[in-house]
Design a protein around this nucleic acid. Structure first.
Lengths: 344, 344
DNA sequence: TTGAAAGCGGTACCAT
DNA sequence: ATGGTACCGCTTTCAA
């Protein structure tokens, strides 16, 4: 008791060994439970470990063993967008269950931040990296290639990933929604989203969406991208801007459900009734959609599952188990009552 | 070019030094830019570093120097509750700006998960730990005390923290809201929140709230705690349960704004008008509140700022700068139109 | 079943 | 301005 409270710092394996009257090696073997010692020895060592409050120094373990650590670097654009928070939750929970630790990097949607973070995190000898998005700086790409560790790129499914890709095809998401809306009869669409320096998944959705709309004989008459996080207020404000611009749109497609909800609120404020006066569609089937009076027309994606799948892919790769280069976690359209069939 | 692409793994300082024709020490000095070498030497070494794609092994640095790492362990209950996501964002961004890395631990609100995570993360020699909440297992407490590193407990302001406490006084939050509502004339209050194994900040809010209500001559007639994450649907469902229980409540207080919004939606579904038929109050002044038609009666807390303050406290302590034992990041009541003055 | 010695990739310290 | 050497805490290897 007094023995341990006096030294708050650094009890080493050597000290444990000395206290137990055995060699470092024996103590080390006991600690790892890899056999090669007697019951009596084990009990003795364990007792001393407890007594001294020994905490192993994993830095030294990794270092000595020339292994990689159990760190997995995880880069996420921002947490103000609820979907990324869910993805992160899925990743961390799954990673933890396999004995890995998440080293977080919030990149604020910029590849420069990502590059700086990658450089730092690599110096800690991580077991692997999970990166959101597929655009990386040239220097980041070089570091990633030289790192010699598994890299899982998530979010936007990538047919030729650096290593492994887990996510959904955002172009297809947009295309499917576009096709659905044009099928309902909408012709003059609006879009409200956020913009960032790099091409991203939301951009891909908009492209797929635009393609489907024009294919169907309609057009994306107006689009507003705010440089902000994809949440409620930007959806509200973006809608205000879009409607104030005088564009005659019959339906607005939003970057995600949170923004769509902001839009719904602006419409209500303006006295526009949805879907009678204007249609509204979102993306992600986010939690808020479960409590609205109207079922929001959206597209379901399981963000938690996507995160878990990413962690599983990482663990598989680390363990040398086979894993497909790309894993599509899927989506499906959720028709709602915020859009309607347009008669002629 | 070919020189580096061939060896994806492990270029050591020794190799850089050899390539540059200098000693390890000189190369080390150049790398750290601490002087003691000529311009020519520096350029030569830098060139080789670049050529070989050398990535320093910080494990070895920390290990050799017997320093702590630049890791800061951060435990968060869950990310489904948007307020924690914001706190984490504030922490990570600030920490990054000071050159520290977040090692995340999602504890799912249990002290056992927290204990396991603390044990693991301590073995990586973190520079400090930021923990959400103030209840820890006995073994966790012992490990924390023996760790000899800064510990910042956040969220619930604690007058006698392990080390430093950053957050708000949740009891006071609840008390203030209770006083406000009772002042408006509400007398039979309901509460909808979530419950977890350990006493937490939400519990403290409820206690403060109950005290103020009873002090004012009212009572908390019914409370519903769901074992779920504090988000939209539990608010909706909890309200349904509460109202179905036949309790005559004139106002419902929710654990946070997300749950309150769920409650508002249920009321609307039921045809109850707010605040005419029933009052609704939340907590947190969360992003969704900014787009609602009615200003939600709530209590403003800056979650991002709270996270940032926690990171600042951590950095100050690591650097040995003075920092108060407790830092209150404050709150203020936001009267809204989801509650009203009750006439006698 | 157990132990001694070497070494992982850096840095501190002392020489030169 | 530069280099040699010991050493951080642990594991690997080889011997006993």
């Amino acid at each position: 008791m007094s023995e341990k409270s006096s030294k708050n710092s650094k009890v080493s394996l050597a000290e444990v060994a000395r206290a137990a009257g055995v060699s470092k090696m024996t103590a080390s073997r006991v600690l790892r439970g890899e056999g090669g010692y007697s019951e009596k020895t084990r009990d003795l060592v364990m007792q001393k470990i407890d007594l001294l409050g020994y905490v192993p120094n994993r830095l030294a373990t990794v270092f000595a063993g020339d292994q990689t650590s159990t760190f997995v670097g995880v880069s996420i654009p921002d947490l103000g967008n609820e979907v990324f928070a869910q993805v992160l939750e899925g990743i961390d929970r799954k990673l933890r269950s396999f004995g890995y630790q998440t080293v977080l990097g919030l990149t604020q949607h910029t590849i420069q931040e990502e590059e700086a973070w990658i450089e730092t995190v690599l110096s800690w000898q991580p077991a692997g990296l999970i990166l959101t998005g597929r655009s990386h700086s040239p220097r980041a790409l070089e570091m990633l290639r030289n790192a010699g560790i598994p890299i899982v790129e998530i979010w936007d499914l990538n047919s030729s990933p650096l290593d492994i890709s887990v996510g959904v095809n955002h172009y297809d998401c947009g295309f499917e929604m576009g096709r659905y809306l044009v099928g309902l009869g909408y012709r003059s669409l609006g879009y409200v989203g956020t913009s960032h320096d790099t091409a991203n998944a939301a951009t891909a959705r908009l492209e797929g969406f635009t393609k489907a709309i024009t294919d169907g004989g309609g057009s994306v008459a107006r689009q507003f991208c705010l440089h902000d996080t994809a949440s409620y207020y930007p959806g509200f404000y973006g809608t205000e801007q879009l409607l104030a611009s005088g564009a005659a749109v019959d339906c607005i497609y939003y970057q995600n459900d949170a923004m769509a909800f902001g839009g719904l609120q602006y419409c209500e404020k303006l006295g526009l009734s949805v879907p009678a006066d204007i249609g509204v569609a979102g993306w992600g089937d986010m939690p808020i959609a479960s409590v609205l009076q109207q079922r929001l027309t959206s597209l379901h994606v399981s963000h938690l599952k996507l995160g878990q799948a990413a962690a599983e892919a990482m663990v598989a790769r680390i363990s040398g188990e086979p894993h497909p280069t790309a894993r599509d976690t899927g989506f499906h359209l959720v028709p709602g009552s915020t859009t309607r069939q347009i008669i002629g």
